[in-house]
């Protein structure tokens, strides 16, 4: 049911872990639904994501999307990181089964939540960044069924 890319990121997840004194930390999802993602960001003075780490409680797709999302935002500016959509993460993974699309939304929202935390801590405004929501399934997103 999973693509080779998803299996690769599940079996060999990139960037698992925590960042001590992270610039921003975001946790989204809830245990009731079976997915929780936490993303740590280390952002330098030029607003570039120097490092990203994740911890995820969830299925294979949740772990793979977290891994891919962190990989995609490292080296990017906060503005560029914000533009990494769930669809981009899905595409990079070669697609997800329809029931797993919400995992990619969770990954996107975890990044946003971490960026929000960073913005709050540093008292800056990131253009286009909304405060984190509790329930990602309420978000009106394009859900590609691949």
């Amino acid at each position: 049911m999973y693509t080779e890319k998803v299996m690769d990121h599940f079996m060999h997840p990139r960037n698992v872990g925590e960042i001590e004194g992270a610039s921003g930390v975001g946790t989204v999802g809830n245990a009731k639904c079976g997915d929780i993602m936490r993303i740590y960001l280390d952002i330098d003075e030029n607003q570039v994501v120097r490092d990203a780490k994740f911890k995820t409680f969830g299925c294979g797709a949740a772990i793979a999307t977290s891994s891919m999302a962190t990989e995609m935002i490292i080296g990017k500016t906060v503005q560029e990181a914000l533009a990494v959509t769930n669809k981009a993460v899905m595409d990079a993974l070669g697609g997800l089964p329809p029931v797993k699309v919400h995992c990619s939304l969770l990954a996107e929202q975890a990044v946003h939540a971490a960026l929000w935390d960073y913005a709050q801590k540093n008292n800056i405004r990131i253009e286009g960044l909304e405060p984190p929501v509790d329930d990602v399934d309420e978000l009106d997103h394009e859900e590609d069924e691949e």
């Binding site: 936490r38 911890k55 409680f57």
Partner: peptide, 8 residues
């Protein structure tokens, strides 16, 4: 568990 925020 090493990947789980709940365990952390």
């Amino acid at each position: 568990r090493s990947m789980s925020p709940l365990y952390e």
